[in-house]
């Protein structure tokens, strides 16, 4: 990040934090039910200018993918589904500019790279009708895409995710630099995962400090506090890995792809752990919708699922380790 950009990012994130806490969180259940953000919320969000964080000056803050990642993660700490929906146009614009392709669907599941007829993936697909981004190999013979209705995914319902299904004929355009594009595209689900994990963990810590059992706050018990400490450590590690991968990517380092693969896998594990331990800390209260922890737990795993099977990435990483 260039000189002066750190301060700029800090002020942008302060604005994002306020918006996440004060505006996103109060409407997250409504947005989940309606499978998309309320229209008034979209208008309020547009006034913040947060979706221009990646655009070059004077149109935006000029913070690029790092800015998009940080803002999306901060908003996701308010609500991941809404953060996904509100920041989707900015991500699609940014990735479209890199890939040189039209963008309507952000597809990260590797199944899509060599699909057979009938293959399905979950994707962001309805926010920008008429534009498309396909992370597919050049010249891949893919059938026409059928965009199914919103299929009530396990989480991130407020993002308006849809199911894409491959048909029998036609082909889809490839991209000129799929790995580079992937490295930036995958920051979108990573930011949602880490934000969801952080939101759940913060709620669990608050609960552990106030809820008493056997005469003491839950936080006094190592059986409760140690797993939360582990979850916090995992989240920090995953975020640090992601920032390192971003740095390597930005500097054109040959290790950038491997680092981003590690960041993705670490984020999936860390966000699941944070969500799981947070629900567990709240016990029955974590299982019911009176508290949003169960929602964030679902959001974390849905964001991970957007990127498909973890073994695919483990295999890619193992090739690098072996060689």
């Amino acid at each position: 990040m260039e000189e002066g950009q750190d301060e700029l990012l800090a002020s942008v994130l302060e604005l994002a934090r306020d918006f996440a806490e004060g505006t996103l969180r109060p409407v997250n259940r409504q947005a989940e039910r309606e499978m998309g953000p309320p229209e008034a919320l979209r208008k309020d969000f547009a006034k913040t200018g947060l979706d221009t964080v990646a655009l070059t000056e004077p149109s935006g803050a000029g913070l690029g993918a790092a800015g998009l990642f940080a803002v999306t993660k901060t908003l996701a700490e308010g609500d991941p589904g809404l953060a996904a929906a509100l920041m989707a146009p900015a991500w699609l614009d940014h990735l479209g500019a890199i890939g040189g392709q039209e963008v309507a669907a952000l597809v990260l599941d590797p199944v899509w790279q060599a699909p057979s007829a009938g293959a399905q993936v979950m994707a962001l697909a309805r926010s920008q009708a008429g534009r498309a981004l396909y992370l597919a190999p050049d010249g891949a013979a893919l059938g026409p895409i059928r965009v199914g209705g919103s299929a009530q995914p396990v989480g991130l319902a407020a993002a308006g995710l849809a199911c894409l299904e491959v048909g029998e004929t036609d082909s889809l355009p490839g991209t000129s630099d799929a790995p580079a594009l992937w490295r930036e595209a995958v920051l979108w689900p990573i930011s949602l995962m880490l934000g969801a994990g952080q939101a759940a963990l913060a709620a669990a810590i608050g609960y552990a400090l106030t809820r008493k059992a056997f005469g003491q706050p839950l936080s006094a018990y190592q059986g409760v506090s140690f797993p939360l400490a582990d979850a916090a450590t995992w989240l920090e590690a995953a975020e640090a890995l992601t920032e390192r991968a971003l740095f390597l990517h930005g500097s054109g380092n040959a290790d950038a792809h491997e680092a981003m693969l590690q960041a993705l896998l670490a984020s999936r594990q860390a966000s699941f752990k944070a969500g799981d331990e947070s629900v567990q800390t709240l016990g029955g209260a974590g299982f019911v919708s009176e508290f949003p922890v169960e929602l964030w737990f679902r959001d974390a795993v849905a964001a991970g699922a957007l990127t498909g099977q973890t073994d695919h990435y483990t295999l890619l990483l193992s090739r690098g380790v072996v060689s």
């Binding site: 599941d109 590797p110 199944v111 399905q120 993936v121 979950m122 994707a123 299929a151 009530q152 995914p153 396990v154 989480g155 199911c163 699941f272 795993v301 849905a302 991970g304 699922a305 957007l306 990127t307 498909g308 099977q309 973890t310 073994d311």
Partner: peptide
């Protein structure tokens, strides 16, 4: 969790 992961993103869909 692993069953959903192995199947890929379609395993996270409501159908």
């Amino acid at each position: 969790r692993q069953a959903m992961d192995l199947v890929g993103s379609v395993g996270a869909l409501g159908d």
